[in-house]
Design a protein around this nucleic acid. Structure first.
Length: 679
DNA sequence: GTGAACACTATTTTT
DNA sequence: TAGTGTTCAC
């Protein structure tokens, strides 16, 4: 119906790009002129708008770029079919096609899912929307939850208008506004409201809470990105030591994954346990993808993508030219590359490397035999593949030779333990008759079992389990398994933090160009999306929020001095407690566009004037006063400012914010970092 | 076919 | 900066 067999594979963004590149090469299109990435983007956008190859080339007409993309799109799609593979967009689009074009299938699922609930509906894209419409328009038993202020996925096709027109799609829908918030303190909500109020395009709404006012939001203006990390690390440690928060209550959130590195190093040095979510995913790692490719090829010899990935991994002396020839022959004879490789001796141009090639196909075939013997459980089989393939050996050698820091063997072991669990969860008793029959009305009984819907499918052989595993492998993410039994700080992008909440949240990198990202400030729409992202970020915090920025930041190999994020200036200063170094006016600031933000001027200058000139705390901690010792009126000595009197003490996160008068000069500081001694 | 040395360049967010 | 692509000697 769609041109795929049941065991189609799902390719990830990496493989997708490889296919695009291949297609371009075959069509003799230089990738210097057309960047594979933008082509890939263009194709993805087209798919999300349900524009297929034919329609696309019609629409492209004579327009140069589009017509070239049209050719690549066509070839790319052919390659997908040849590989029996779908990309991420196809999974959704094809599902919709299936539902829209086949009344029997639609009925089947409508019967299956009588009541539909969609969460985060504001981040629905077109294919998802159409799928929902197909399933729900029968009986109208649908409930969606969403917040247009939290729409942050427009870059992948999410369309806020979908949630806004829900009432039109389902007339008579009952709309319930949920404006009372049970998560955050009043201060945090107020700050979030301040920010989001600056967006023009939104349904008006104001979060409120019956809860406490809570503590002020601490804004830390650090000198450098290292200072930023230092502040975050020390504050977390201090809060944990005081018992105010467990490590697992703390999260560090950032706009770009690249920002996590500094924090990781610092947390590591301070001995604070942490875990990074997102970024380079477990399943994106080379060694993991290699092993998965072995498994895929064993499972399905037609998987050319897997074949090409591993035919020379580890090195077998089979180079690009040989692979290219195999590809050509396979294409010409309409067989898979693996099949072609098996008969390498029959192809004149492959004879020379035939022995190498065949030792590879023999290896795969012997692995397949091993699998069929069914003597190993899934984990044992993966272990066998890891060793037999020679990948473990190669990695170990490389590690010794290059002195690599990351332990990639460790990752492979991790894969084993995952395989073990997968086996446990999906191994069936030999007989499994737990399926039900549904008559779809056309007299064709369709067999469906619950397992099919809920990933509880089971198999009684290791081969079967492998098949099940691979069906989902490209969709796995490690981020799902929040393990609250272990106590560690969580690091993740704001996008991944959506829907989660933490006692204490550190937002880092709050500078123009970082957040909002420099790519977004050109257009109003994008800037508003960044603002929604900030809104999401702020509202992740339950009790304490720390907003951190660095005057100087090393990013992408360059040191930049950026202005504080415009979003900071949008927050009522009364909600903030400012600390850190005063911003000097650097000569090398790229663009000062935000300086003259009209109405925000007073707030901005209020904020600036409160930045103190405090430097990093002195190393000596001897005789230092702890926050508990500090009381108003106490005379203290500061390492840099000398003698002063404490005017105000405000407990915050196990530490205390204090205001000290040094001979008429007032300074705000965090007690623990200030290094105060008794006068 | 391999690996080292060098040059180049693109830097958001994710299923 | 780091990851990728190119060139060259073996």
């Amino acid at each position: 119906m769609l041109g795929f067999t049941k065991n189609f594979s799902i390719i990830d963004t990496d493989d997708q790009q490889k296919l695009v590149k291949e297609a371009m090469k075959e069509l003799d299109i230089a990738d210097s002129q057309f960047k594979p990435k933008s082509v890939q983007n263009e194709i993805s956008n087209a798919k999300n708008k349900f524009i297929d190859v034919e329609e696309y080339s019609l629409l492209a007409g004579k327009e140069y770029f589009l017509s070239v993309v049209a050719r690549i799109y066509k070839r790319y799609q052919e390659k997908l079919i040849a590989n029996n593979a779908m990309d991420f967009d196809d999974i959704l689009v094809n599902m919709v096609k299936l539902l829209e074009n086949n009344p029997d299938i639609r009925e089947l699922y409508r019967n299956k899912f009588r009541y539909i609930m969609v969460d985060e509906y504001q981040d629905t894209n077109m294919p998802q929307y159409r799928a929902v419409m197909q399933l729900a328009s029968g009986n109208g038993n649908i409930c969606v939850v969403g917040d247009d202020d939290q729409s942050i996925y427009s870059f992948r096709g999410a369309d806020v208008r979908i949630i806004l027109k829900f009432e039109k799609d389902f007339p008579g829908a009952n709309v319930i506004k949920l404006e009372e918030n049970y998560r955050s303190t009043k201060t945090i909500l107020d700050a979030a409201n301040c920010v989001i109020a600056n967006n023009k395009k939104r349904k008006s709404k104001n979060l409120r809470t019956e809860g406490d006012q809570g503590e002020k939001i601490i804004v830390m203006n650090a000198d450098t990105s290292n200072g930023e990390a230092d502040f975050v690390g020390r504050t977390i440690k201090m809060m944990a030591d005081k018992g105010k928060f467990k490590y697992s209550d703390c999260a560090v959130l950032y706009r770009m994954n690249a920002l996590s590195r500094n924090i990781e190093t610092t947390l590591h040095n301070l001995g604070i346990p942490f875990r990074v979510y997102g970024g380079m995913r477990f399943y994106d790692r080379k060694e993991i993808k290699d092993i998965l490719a072995y498994l895929r090829l064993i499972n399905d010899p037609k998987d050319n993508i897997a074949f090409e990935r591993i035919i020379n991994v580890p090195k077998r002396g089979i180079g690009d030219t040989t692979i290219e020839k195999i590809r050509q022959y396979a294409l010409a004879d309409n067989i898979s590359m693996f099949e072609c490789a098996m008969h390498a001796v029959d192809y004149p141009e492959l004879v020379r490397s035939a022995s190498k090639i065949c030792s590879f196909t023999d290896l795969i075939n012997s692995m397949k035999d091993k699998l069929r013997e069914n003597e190993l459980d899934f984990a044992q089989f993966v272990d066998y593949v890891e060793n037999e393939s020679g990948i473990i050996e190669e990695i170990t050698e490389q590690r010794e030779k290059k002195g690599e820091i990351i332990d990639r063997v460790e990752n492979l072991k991790e894969l084993l333990s995952e395989a073990k669990e997968y086996d446990k969860a999906h191994r069936a008793e030999p007989v499994d008759m737990d399926s039900l029959e549904i008559d779809d009305g056309d007299g064709m009984p369709v067999e469906v079992d619950d397992d099919f819907f809920f990933d509880t499918a089971t198999a009684d052989t290791t081969e079967g389990i492998l098949g099940l595993y691979l069906e989902n492998a490209s969709l796995f993410t490690e981020g799902d398994d929040f393990d609250d039994s272990d106590d560690y700080v969580k690091l993740m992008s704001i996008h991944s933090a959506k829907g989660l909440e933490f006692g204490a949240v550190f937002l880092i990198g709050l500078e123009e160009g970082v957040f909002p990202s420099y790519r977004s400030v050109q257009s109003v729409e994008d800037t508003e999306e960044e603002r929604r992202l900030m809104y999401v970020a702020i509202t992740r915090a339950k009790k304490n929020l720390f907003m951190v920025l660095a005057r100087q930041r090393m990013l992408f190999g360059q040191t930049n001095c950026n202005q504080p994020s415009r979003f900071l200036k949008e927050i009522n200063p009364e909600l903030l407690y400012l600390m850190g170094s005063k911003r000097e006016t650097p000569k090398d600031v790229p663009q000062g566009e935000t300086n003259r933000e009209k109405s925000k001027k007073s707030i901005a200058s209020a904020m600036k004037s409160q930045f103190t000139k405090e430097k990093k705390p002195a190393a000596s901690r001897e005789g230092q006063l702890s926050p508990d010792d500090l009381i108003e009126g106490l005379r203290v000595v500061h390492p840099r400012f000398g003698e002063g009197v404490i005017l105000k003490v405000e407990p915050v996160g196990g530490d205390a914010l204090i205001t000290v008068d040094f001979d008429g000069m007032r300074k705000n500081m965090l007690a623990n970092a200030a290094g105060l001694k008794k006068a």
